[in-house]
Every structure is written in C-alpha cells, then in structure tokens.
C-alpha cells in the first residue's frame, strides 16, 4: 500500500542506506528572547549538546517536561530550525545542509493535527501528497486505503476537518504522515488529548507501521506507558540535556526504580508531568 511512484533518485535505496537512521552529535539550539527596549535579548538554551543515535528500524522515545527541548529536537530533525552547534544526519544526509533528501525521508505527526479546517480529510491528504510527488492516480487509490487502515470512516471523508473530533483529526494526521512512506517518522505527542480507545488505535497503528514498513521512529511523549510499550529505548531530556538513553528496564535498574515515573524523578529530581498538564515546549 505504500509503494507509491514517487521518484526519489537523490535518496539512497534503503538497502544501501547507513545502519544508523539518525546520528545526532553535540546538537545545540538556543533562542533569543526579546526584552524591553534598550536591554539586550536574553538567550535561552533549548538543546544543550545533545548526542544520540537511532538504528534503522528502531523506536526511541524521549520523555521530558514542558520546555525540556523535545519539540525543538523534533523541529530540528524536521528541517524547520537551524542548529547553533553540533550536527545531525538522517540516513547519512546532513539535516541542515541537505534538506531536500532529508525531507523526502522524514514525516511527522505532532500534538496539533494542523489541517486546513474547511477542507475535508481527502482534500487535505490529496494536496499534501502532491508535495511528495504523488500523482492524482496514486492518491485516488491510496487515500481511501490508508484512511480505512487508520479506522477513519469512509462516509466522513468529504466532511470538513473542523467537524471532526480530535481523535479523528489525529488519525488523519497519521494517515498524512504515512501516505508519503517516510522511513523516519517523528512523533511529537501523537496521542495527547485522545480518548483511551483512539489512543490505543493510534498506538496499534504505530506498531504496525514499524513492523510492516521498516520505519524508524522517534517518539516524544508524555505517556510513560506509551513510551514503555512502543519503544526499544527511552531517553530523558531535562532542560535541554539528554540525561540518559537506554531500554526501559536498564533505565529502571540504573535508578533503582520500580516504575518509569520513579526513574524520571530520580534522574531529574522533578515530578513527571502527566498528559493533562502537558503542553508543547518552546
């Protein structure tokens, strides 16, 4: 279903792609915050020399409080921000200087579904797919298939997005990301605000995508259980610093904790913010 006819000749075939999907080395990002007239702008460091790698096909979850730098990390890897130091590569391509091949390999689902609200799910997916080189002939076949796969009712395909529930919108967001067959999927709190049933459906779908389509996943989440069941390794990001990145069991063992929440507290000295308190950082 994902075998679209996108002609991506400047992207390496997956077989010859590097073993590491993502290599982040000493990545640094700071923002300048305006102050009153005459006073110099205040610098705020969002990411502090962060380093990690993600192997091809791996799912890595990043936990962190609001403002810890999770969204900044995702936006850097999405080519939406420029770094202030360090480097990042996606399948061997430099994220900051080789944006085009990186963009062909990456897609993203964020906490806000983000669609043209007057347009329907079908229309939103259709034009977005064109940006990835997919023709009308392909999308006519694939959009209904992928919407059915994420559990979106066929009879609501032409309804304006603004009339859909948050859960429905998030399913369309997932469909939009997967329609372009990304080999690296960046998920920024994809289930935040969803009802438990929608949350489970989205999580099942993420699992399936990973299993069937060899996708590499970077997941930023406020849901500890979600991080534990979906990911191979879990990282803790605190005030822009990546404190640790290892399998959940190793993490608990390292901090002598029974649960991930206890491990998070031990690592950061801060209580973990659950979903209802969550917000997007930066």
């Amino acid at each position: 279903m994902f075998d679209n006819e996108v002609l991506v000749n400047d992207v390496p075939p997956l077989g010859s792609a590097p073993r590491s999907a993502v290599i982040v080395k000493d990545l640094r990002k700071e923002f300048r915050k305006k102050r009153k007239l005459g006073k110099p702008a205040r610098r705020s460091i969002a990411l502090h020399d962060v380093s990690f790698t993600i192997a091809r096909g791996e799912c890595v979850a990043i936990l962190g409080q609001n403002g810890s730098g999770k969204s900044t990390l995702i936006r850097l890897l999405s080519t939406l921000l420029l770094n202030d130091g360090g480097s990042a590569t996606v399948f061997g391509y430099d994220v900051f200087s080789e944006t085009k091949p990186v963009r062909r390999l990456v897609n993203r689902v964020s906490v806000e579904a983000s669609f043209f609200k007057k347009m329907s799910a079908g229309e939103n997916l259709s034009y977005a797919a064109r940006f990835y080189g997919m023709t009308a002939r392909i999308t006519r076949r694939e959009i209904p298939e992928i919407l059915a796969k994420v559990g979106f009712p066929a009879d609501r395909r032409n309804e304006a997005m603004e009339n859909l529930s948050r859960g429905m919108q998030q399913k369309v967001a997932l469909a939009r990301a997967l329609l372009t067959s990304p080999v690296l999927l960046l998920l920024d709190e994809p289930t935040t605000g969803l009802d438990p049933r929608s949350k489970l459906e989205v999580q099942d779908f993420i699992r399936e995508v990973r299993k069937e389509h060899d996708a590499t996943i970077l997941l930023c989440t406020h849901d500890l259980a979600e991080a534990e069941v979906l990911s191979d390794r879990i990282g803790i990001l605190d005030a822009g610093r990546l404190l640790v990145l290892e399998p959940a069991e190793d993490l608990k063992r390292r901090y002598n904790a029974q649960t991930l929440e206890e491990a998070f507290f031990a690592a950061t000295g801060k209580e973990f913010e659950h979903e209802e308190e969550a917000d997007v950082d930066e």
Partner: peptide, 26 residues
C-alpha cells in the same frame, strides 16, 4: 534523475494550485 526530480516538482506545483482551488471552493 533530473527528469524525475522535475516531474516530482511539477506534481508538487499542481498540489499548490489544487489546494488553493479547494480553498476557493470551500
């Protein structure tokens, strides 16, 4: 390779026009 890239770009251009047509309709 350049032909494929050009084709993908032209499809992308139709996507921009298509989106605006949807918005005009809506």
């Amino acid at each position: 390779a350049p032909a494929a890239t050009l084709r993908a770009e032209l499809i992308g251009l139709t996507g921009v026009v298509e989106r605006n047509l949807y918005l005009t309709k809506r």
